[in-house]
Design a protein around this nucleic acid. Sequence first.
DNA 1: CTGAAAGCGCTTACAG
DNA 2: CTGAAAGCGCTTACAG
Lengths: 355, 355
Amino acid sequence: MPNDKPAAFSIDGPASGVTRVKRTRGGPKGLRITDVATAAGVSPITVSRVFNSPETVAPETLERVRGVVQKLGYVPNRLAGGLSSSKSRLIAAIVPTIAHSLFSETIQVFSETMSKAGYQVLLALSGYSDTSEEALLDAVLSRRPEGVLLTGVAHTDSLRERLRNVGIPIVETWDMTDTPIDMLVGFSHYQVGVAVAERFIARGVRYPGLVSANDDRAIARITGFRARFAHEGICNIADVIVSPPSSVLVGKAALPELLARMPQLDAVFCGSDLLAIGVLGEAKRRGIDVPSQLSICGFGDLEFASETSPTLTTVRVDGTHIGLNAAQCLLARLRGEQHASISDVGFHIVERETV
Amino acid sequence: MPNDKPAAFSIDGPASGVTRVKRTRGGPKGLRITDVATAAGVSPITVSRVFNSPETVAPETLERVRGVVQKLGYVPNRLAGGLSSSKSRLIAAIVPTIAHSLFSETIQVFSETMSKAGYQVLLALSGYSDTSEEALLDAVLSRRPEGVLLTGVAHTDSLRERLRNVGIPIVETWDMTDTPIDMLVGFSHYQVGVAVAERFIARGVRYPGLVSANDDRAIARITGFRARFAHEGICNIADVIVSPPSSVLVGKAALPELLARMPQLDAVFCGSDLLAIGVLGEAKRRGIDVPSQLSICGFGDLEFASETSPTLTTVRVDGTHIGLNAAQCLLARLRGEQHASISDVGFHIVERETV
DNA sequence: CTGAAAGCGCTTACAG
DNA sequence: CTGAAAGCGCTTACAG
């Protein structure tokens, strides 16, 4: 490994052509662009161009430099490059959680799309975290990302303000609002609640219940659900609020609670498919027929849910589509194009009782 | 927003105390550490200390600087900080995919643990990618991460060599080898295959089949499975190799293929729980009783699998444990401690036929 | 198509 | 406990 750097506090020898006292920081730290430049007989700027604008470099020069890069195993330092160019090539994705969640496929596609475009994804998990949202945002912004994907729109005014002020493209996802920070790819959880209520109402449901976490999006669904039922004159809705992470077991435990509060219970709207599967299992165990005696609706359409439980209704959202769309929003902006602010990707309710 | 930077090609005024020609690059770019220092009446070094070693700063100074930081909304530039200190505070996680996968919970816990320790996670998806593994590694190393989590151990010699040479802690996960690059937290997929074969053998299985992808870990499981059956004199194993992503539908389609090749089929080892659920569903549709006529084993223990399909056997691996353990390995090394190289977290087979 | 000079915003390694 | 000088490894904004 070539290393022309002088030892700490040494005086450069004649070989380097310089004679002045220098201080180095730490030992040899690997290859620098100057090492490649020297070996290839060009200036550092030319090496930089080979990486960042190869089309501006003469073909022979390009080939020669690339050969040296290959031979030496040089990898540019993007901390330096980013600092110098103000282009970090980093995109932050702020997500509550990626475990067993709908968001994981959004992040998957988002990340794939971004990396094809030459960006890398900094993953920031906001849920179940010890650090506050402000601290998380500080950590994220300290990397000087060129864009940010947010999951959900419910942030404090302070956060929204700060994000707006950094002046980079922001895309909010998995939710809906009239006043996004910048761009938005999502759908209305309130409308999901309304739609599920309408299915239940069409089935003649009179005594609905719900099992849900109480994050902002879940609350929006609940609100829509309640509002639609209220419109039918049904205001007595049994609810069990659970804390994340939701699971099959939590769903199982919720049904007895609902029944205790409302013995005539004839429908349950669940905050996730895992919860719905739990409620379904518990219902079967109690000899309650689904859906004739009890309608159950989940949320998320984890693939297995409808496949394994034909009696389960669920709300399907295309997380892949959200991820792709969000990436494209950001990329368009990074190319300097204008881009539509709000994109409603919708949802649909999946019923497979006939399967 | 204070901005003392001179306009392009201007001459600094007397206010700055310097009189020389300067060239600036682009317009004002936000707050710098010097802006905070000036406003707080201290030097930039002191501001730096407030962030990086607050215990070395006088309490009053600390408070004053923090007040200014808060008021101005200053966020340090970690590109600059990382370049200067050679501490990127970045950890790379290289994962085939996070969508519907076992890895997502590993990454979840890994990321949580790392962020508590002051590191951020750079997510690099290696599967289904257009870019080669070499290009992915280049992209990752260009960020100068202080550590790397890898999923799986099967890399080319070139990759292993490069990773070893960067001299940062590396932890390989979700697999087993005697010769890790550095540290390892995983288990033997070969032994998983052997263990599943033994379950089947104990049940009197004579005509086993398998449905699987052909990634390195899946192949190791298959190899163990075949080897154990060969030991019983059973070498004729029907197999259907599917390409990822695996799904319930792929599993459904695989069963007829297996039956065509081996009509007496009495067991199927599936590469994932999703595949297993598909095989199970198709078996039921065809009136094949599970498990009396056909034993089915999945891999992964997605929570729902055993809950929704009591007749399904599956192999459970604690991905959460792997993520936590891997993070701790890396953190120990980053603190300069020695750390055990290989940690076998094991697996266990879950059977819930009696539920 | 190529290069010398200056600067990006921090931190290190001292000295006091 | 605090600071002036030098440097981290790149790229910009010119000029030729």
